[in-house]
């Protein structure tokens, strides 16, 4: 029966496409969250495959903290134009201006946590009943217990102790008015799977993932980008180094990796030999032992 064998990437792909199609079939008004990071790029690529030669039957949405790498925004706009896809942009700045959230103060101020309110408001305003995200179970231990179809109550909250059992490939997306689902089509992918798949499919990525010279400074062992809205302490020195992004998120909490990896092959080698997790560079997860669980309970991605 070996002629009916597919490799692990093809099997993960088939599973994710199945989940994405299930969302389109079970929900009236779904949306796919898109950050311009590699996970959401892969997820969007899978969505295009799922509905080819038709168009992706739902919009994308970017929760924009305003603290972006310009390259990520250029990439987003270009891909949307090339594929004829609609991308809604929800601004954290709007939530701040409306008084829905208050900006954190101090040098470590980040808008990362504020995104939750912007996201929940956008889901409510657009009446989305399912929001697909690029979260993976291997990223973080609270995520390891996440379902593909994750139910959220009317306040957008996650109750990890009361999750619906999920068996075989039968997904239960039934809900009451005002509730919604978060769906994670690439739950079973690891960081390595994502990179191997990008390589196998030759998916176009923002240049940030490859080595480039950049002005950076070191804070608590993490290299951060020197961009106009970053506040530096007196002791922090700006240096120009060869770096690349391992994840792309809000600039204030996205650590850069010192690297000269210039091709997808280089990156796969680098990921294979690296000994820290990709979220190890994420200041947002270092806040406490259960930082991710707490944020997820409130309605974070």
């Amino acid at each position: 029966m070996d002629q009916y064998r597919i490799n692990h990437l093809k099997e993960l792909e088939a599973e994710s496409i199945y989940v994405i199609r299930e969302v389109a079939a079970q929900f009236e008004n779904p949306v796919m969250l898109f950050s311009g990071g590699k996970d959401s790029i892969v997820m969007f690529h899978l969505a295009r495959k799922a509905f080819w030669p038709g168009k992706v039957p739902f919009p994308l949405m970017h929760i924009d903290t305003g603290h972006n790498f310009p390259e990520a925004l250029e990439y987003r706009d270009r891909i949307m134009e090339e594929t004829g896809t609609k991308c809604i942009v929800a601004l954290v700045q709007d939530s701040i201006d409306q008084g829905r959230v208050v900006e954190e103060k101090g040098v470590n101020a980040s808008r990362n946590k504020l995104q939750t309110v912007t996201l929940l408001d956008a889901i409510e305003n657009h009446k989305f009943d399912a929001a697909m995200g690029g979260g993976r179970r291997d990223e973080e231990k609270a995520r390891a217990k996440e379902r593909f179809f994750s139910h959220r109550d009317e306040f957008g909250q996650w109750d990890p102790k009361n999750q619906r059992p999920e068996l075989w490939n039968i997904f239960n997306g039934r809900k009451n008015m005002g509730e919604h689902f978060r769906v994670f089509p690439i739950s079973n992918w690891t960081e390595m799977d994502v990179w191997q798949y990008i390589y196998m499919e030759q998916i176009d990525l923002p240049s940030l993932y490859f080595t480039h010279k950049r002005e950076v400074f070191n804070r608590d062992g993490v290299w951060l980008a020197k961009l106009p809205f970053m506040q530096l302490k007196d002791t922090e020195k700006v240096e120009t180094l060869d770096v690349r992004c391992r994840t792309i998120g809000d600039v204030t909490c996205t650590g850069l990796t010192l690297s000269t990896a210039n091709t997808l092959e280089d990156i796969i080698h680098e990921v294979a030999s690296t000994r820290t997790t990709e979220r190890g560079g994420r200041a947002d997860d270092k806040r406490s032992e259960s930082a991710m669980e707490d944020r997820k309970r409130e309605g974070y991605f």
Partner: peptide
């Protein structure tokens, strides 16, 4: 502690829910 992902599990020292873990060797994921 690697597999107990939720705060209540760590506090009680028991596994409550299914946790998914990933590893690979050159042959299989």
């Amino acid at each position: 502690l690697l597999t107990d992902g939720l705060r209540s599990e760590r506090e009680q020292g028991i596994t409550i829910d299914v946790a998914y873990r990933y590893f690979a060797t050159p042959k299989r994921k």
